[in-house]
């Protein structure tokens, strides 16, 4: 099985990893950031935690489910997936205008403010799109 990370040039993956490192470093409540292919492969993650691969697969499943649910409810395109748990928040966003489709999943601890988390995740997603298109 060819990992999704092998489908991108090394310099692009380096740029993606740098952005994930920066996202986590500048937002101390973020405990994990994972870029995932639509079919559930981890492309890059920071930090390099064992759970990153499973979070990648789960985020693609949940994103596909949320899109199916939005379609079923005639709500057009699903944009964000937000999971608010007792001790933290997970945000999954599609990275815009990339083929094959990729998404960014971010796990944050409970003290992070949702609006701020969405803003930094969206900013990172846009920066990732620029890197991946380069």
């Amino acid at each position: 099985m060819q990992p999704a990370s092998q489908r991108f040039a090394p310099h692009i993956l380096d740029a993606v990893r740098r952005q994930l490192v920066e996202l986590v470093a500048t937002n101390t409540q973020i405990t994990l950031a994972v870029v995932t292919s639509a079919d559930g492969f981890e492309v890059a993650a920071h930090p390099d935690l064992p759970m990153a691969q499973r979070i990648a697969a789960m985020s693609s499943s949940l994103q596909a489910l949320s899109e199916a649910m939005a379609r079923e409810a005639s709500l057009s395109r699903s944009r964000n997936l937000i999971i608010e748990a007792d001790s933290g928040t997970i945000v999954v966003l599609g990275i815009p205008d990339i083929s094959p489709r990729l998404s960014l999943a971010v796990v944050a601890s409970g003290s992070e403010i949702l609006g701020r988390l969405l803003w930094v995740t969206r900013s990172c997603s846009a920066a990732l799109a620029r890197s991946l298109r380069a």
Partner: peptide
């Protein structure tokens, strides 16, 4: 049916265009 098919990038495992990722 409700479908959650997406583009399949793992053509080495199975040469089909799409794959189900949730249900």
């Amino acid at each position: 049916p409700i479908s959650t098919e997406v583009d399949n990038i793992d053509r080495a495992l199975c040469d089909k265009e799409s794959t189900t990722v949730a249900l």
